[in-house]
Design a protein around this nucleic acid. Structure first.
Length: 583
RNA sequence: GCGCCCAUAGCUCAGCUGGAUAGAGCAUCUGACUACGAAUCAGAAGGCCGGAGGUUCGAAUCCUUCUGGGCGCACCA
């Protein structure tokens, strides 16, 4: 349970009482009221701005209203202390036993502590990665893959019914190029000398094996055949092969999507036409000529009548073409169909994770989603900024042309999936991120992955020591739940316990904001609290977790650090990283 | 020329959708190992939150406008 939402409902309850007493007008809007941990711990455990927001409605000065509200709150059992501060903040202090009960809650729920019902089972679709099926994944895909995956995990933990989706762009010209590239490798496999790969085709050697497979399967059947005879066959085969490759790459990162939607399939099923008809009926489609883009007119620009979607009606800057001059669908058209399809499958909330180079695409996609769902669908787009790959501060040279681009596989094999996943969350998604191979594997304070893992391992170490110190002691979770937690009396211990109890709120807030990086930041912070407490025991032996000849205190402290470790494990679970038992 | 994103300590970044005296790490300086692993911790110092206006009880946060960076700008995906 989220402590702060409990307090908020307490406050809302008392506001209703004040309404019946005539202090506040009936139907007071309490939606903007917040209950948060104050920045300064001296202000208490939680602070609310309620009186400042409602002062006007009550016709009272904020501090006077605060006094009336505080009076009511003092009567609530789990609230220990209420005081008014500053312009009208109400600072609340909870009874110790209330916080300590959260330790028991963690021990009872394990890593499920922090699971919430914020989402109330509402279905959410998170689309991420969606790399073109034309080759293995490169390092640029890592960030979006992690952000999307962890965001999905986070929403699931917060009580949403999440579907992880991958949209396969297998309908455009690039898959024809892929098919032709494969055909070349196929001929090579049959013994032909193909020389250099011609410009415009994919030169990567990842097509060598698929070429051999095709040769083994069909022999020389397609070797001399006309392109029109084999193109479709090779396209299908190549896409299947590339998607296997991509799925394998994603598996290396611990990413597994629930649904793979094929663009070509959407077209074939008539989904694009259906979406088009729907928009046309609404009057959102017309044939017109676009202005050339100002400032940077392409050399070959010529005015041309096109089938356009009236995206300006829905907040976009210009209307967007749905059909190419040859009459085929644009990518945008099938992407509309994709979101239309999601909506029909029951998703009102959709999230797309894109790379920063798709920034110009956001407005039109949001506009299209609004139009195609009749305003019911909500699309949020998370743009992931670039990752700068560094080696000891020096940029890693990457050249797609020279074929030396760093693949996702290269990175994962070098530093491990856990490091990649965690580091990708050490910045908010819309800030660029430095990824230094030397730093991310360093075992020091400034490497958050290590720092968090070390804290977890340290707890394990304490338990090993405790088992030796108290051979008769029972330190299982079941036994720890019965510990006398009243023995946790130091301010530092109480502080850690409060931080542990904050976890459900962190999950909620991060889920609401769609910001998975907050999980990583919280874990780093709470790990610091733990390390600090651990070191108190260095200076003052009575503050150590294991106290010789005092099984009761030891058990209470182990209950505390065990629940800390479980919160870390719970967070790592969201991030998709395995906790390290021993370093 | 237009749109989106970014600008916070010397450096790298948080800042909980408007709250109280703006917080961490690194680097710098001063300390803590007869060890529940010092792979860590404690303390000091460091700020006109890019500039200028505005909105209100209250702004790093919202609006306007500059400045400086990144990305993208018909018939590609």
């Amino acid at each position: 349970m989220n402590v702060f939402s409990l307090l908020k409902s307490d406050i809302e309850g008392q506001i209703l009482v004040l309404e019946t007493e005539g202090v506040l007008p009936a139907g007071t809007d309490s939606s903007r009221i917040t209950v948060e941990p104050p920045r300064d711990a001296a202000h208490g455990d939680a602070a609310t701005n309620a009186a400042m927001l409602l002062g006007k409605a009550a016709g009272l000065k904020p501090r006077d209203l605060a006094e009336k509200l505080a009076e009511k709150l003092r009567d609530i059992d789990h609230i220990d202390h209420v005081e008014i501060a500053g312009p009208g903040f109400i600072n609340l202090r909870m009874a110790d036993r209330f916080w300590l009960s959260q330790v028991v809650a963690v021990l009872e729920n394990g890593t499920a502590y922090g699971n919430g019902d914020l989402g109330r089972g509402e279905r959410v679709n998170v689309e991420y990665v969606s790399a073109n099926p034309t080759g293995p994944m490169h390092v640029g895909h890592c960030r979006g893959a992690v952000v999307g995956d962890v965001l999905a995990n986070l929403l699931a933990k917060a009580g949403y019914a999440v579907t992880k989706e991958y949209y396969i762009n297998d309908a455009g010209a690039q898959v024809d190029v892929l098919a032709k590239s494969l055909h070349l490798r196929y001929r090579e496999a049959l013994g032909e000398n193909i020389g250099d790969i011609p410009a415009g085709l994919y030169p990567g050697d990842y097509l060598v094996e698929p070429g051999k497979k095709m040769a083994a399967r069909d022999g020389d059947k397609w070797q001399k055949a006309d392109e029109s005879a084999w193109l479709e066959e090779f396209r299908q085969f190549a896409i299947t092969e590339m998607m296997d490759l991509i799925r394998a790459d994603l598996a290396l990162m611990g990413v597994a999507h629930d649904v793979f939607t094929s663009e070509a399939n959407l077209v074939a099923k008539g989904k694009v036409q259906q979406a088009f008809d729907f928009l046309e009926k609404k009057g959102d489609i017309y044939v017109g000529v676009l202005e050339p883009p100002k400032g940077k007119t392409p050399d070959d620009w010529e005015p041309r009548p096109q089938t356009l979607f009236r995206s300006t009606e829905f907040g976009d800057d210009v209307d967007r073409p749905l059909k190419k001059s040859d009459g085929s669908w644009t990518y945008f058209a099938s992407d509309i169909a994709c979101h239309f399809d999601k909506y029909e499958r029951g998703f009102n909330t959709m999230i797309d994770v894109f790379g920063a180079d798709h920034g110009g695409y956001v407005k039109r996609m949001k506009a299209a989603t609004k139009a195609i769902t009749g305003g019911e669908g909500d699309l949020d787009v998370k743009l992931c900024q670039l990752v700068n790959l560094l080696e000891n501060g020096e940029p890693v040279k990457m050249s797609k042309r020279a074929g030396t681009f760093v693949t996702l596989r290269d990175v994962v094999e070098r530093v491990g999936k856990d490091v990649v996943r965690f580091i990708m969350l050490t910045r908010k998604n819309d800030a660029t991120l430095d990824f230094d191979f030397a730093k991310v594997t360093e075992q020091s304070r400034d490497n958050p992955v290590f720092y968090v893992q070390y804290a977890y391992a340290r707890v394990k170490s304490v338990f090993r020591q405790a088992a030796e110190a108290f051979p008769e002691g029972d330190f299982s979770d079941v036994a720890l739940k019965k510990a006398d937690l009243g023995l946790l009396t130091s301010v530092d211990e109480k502080h850690l316990v409060r931080r542990i109890a904050e976890w459900p709120r962190i999950v909620e807030q991060a889920a609401i904001a769609h910001e998975p990086h907050r999980i990583a930041f919280f874990m780093t912070e709470i790990a610091a609290d733990f390390h600090a407490l651990w070191n108190k025991g260095r200076d003052t032996t009575t503050l150590r977790f294991i106290v010789a000849d005092d099984l009761a205190t030891t058990t209470a402290r182990l209950a505390m650090i065990r629940s800390f470790a479980l919160v870390i494990a719970s967070g790592l679970d969201v991030v998709g990283v395995a906790p390290v038992e021993e370093m």
